[in-house]
């Protein structure tokens, strides 16, 4: 017993230092990478000579619209993911039905097993074309990381902390909102961050069913054999993904409860 206690104290400290430095790295590496991409983008943009077709594809106002669409698609699909996956994750960790939980994870995991391309087409068949369909498809695809992290996050909460809370007369709901969820927040946010980045990338497929986004530029570049257009479209997608990732990193850093 004694040795366990002696071991955990320094371990806990070491872990917090490690996560602190990884947090720091997180918040430095992403902007650096984004900066490199931005420089690359500006260089290519400035020093390439665009033929009229490329110029039409890379029309700035059009690019801005596509980036905006991509952002909106990624944002709302992530919101939808959170609205579905977090409550489901909470529900399956209540009560005592581990079988329900496991099968739930498998079923929702199917979303990720189907290629995003196929998923978008399936949702198109069901819901018709447009951005909303894309949002539903993306949400289905990115459900798993948030669900899994919610479950893991809630289950990794030290059982003795919950026991102490319940033993002092906290209700099940108070234990959830005041102890378990706050302590699971860092892990849940990590899942949301993953889902966001997936959604930003996958939103490039939205053009398939008329959902807009930077996929239009990349697709046009491919069809018309304009490598510069493909490159610029791809770099813009990557930039967006990095920005979302950075915001996720900030959230992870500042929404983490103090004392952890």
């Amino acid at each position: 017993m004694t040795t366990v206690r002696v071991q955990t104290a320094p371990q806990r400290k070491r872990r917090s230092i490690a996560s602190w430095t990884s947090d720091q790295l997180d918040l430095i590496v992403t902007p650096v990478l984004a900066l490199v991409l931005l420089i690359l983008l500006v260089t290519v943009w400035t020093y390439s000579t665009f033929d009229p077709t490329t110029e039409r594809i890379l029309e700035p106002a059009q690019l801005a619209r596509q980036m905006w669409e991509q952002t909106i698609l990624a944002f709302f699909s992530t919101v939808l993911v959170v609205l579905i996956a977090v409550p489901v994750g909470i529900l399956v960790t209540r009560g005592g039905a581990p079988r329900v939980k496991n099968s739930m994870v498998s079923v929702l995991g199917l979303g990720q097993a189907i290629p995003a391309y196929g998923l978008i087409v399936l949702f198109f068949v069901w819901l018709g074309q447009g951005g909303l369909t894309v949002i539903f498809a993306l949400a289905t695809f990115a459900l798993l990381p948030v669900l899994r992290n919610t479950i893991v996050g809630l289950e990794q909460v030290d059982k003795s902390v919950i026991e102490a809370g319940r033993g002092m007369g906290m209700t099940g709901f108070q234990s959830l909102t005041k102890i378990e969820l706050p302590l699971a927040v860092p892990i849940i946010i990590a899942g949301i961050r993953t889902a966001t980045v997936i959604n930003v990338g996958m939103a490039s497929l939205a053009f398939l069913i008329g959902g807009g986004g930077l996929g239009e530029t990349i697709n046009a570049g491919l069809k018309l054999n304009r490598p510069t257009a493909i490159f610029i479209g791809a770099v813009l997608v990557a930039l967006l993904a990095l920005i979302f990732d950075f915001l996720g990193g900030l959230a992870q850093r500042y929404l983490r409860p103090k004392g952890l």
Binding site: S160, V161, G167, M168, G169
Partner: peptide, 23 residues
């Protein structure tokens, strides 16, 4: 109500179980 009962009884466990995110 077991919760009302527990609020009238102090409870100390081996692992202490302090809330790490609370002062």
């Amino acid at each position: 109500d077991p919760n009302a009962l527990r609020r009238r009884i102090g409870y100390v466990i081996q692992q202490v179980g302090l809330f790490p995110h609370r002062t």
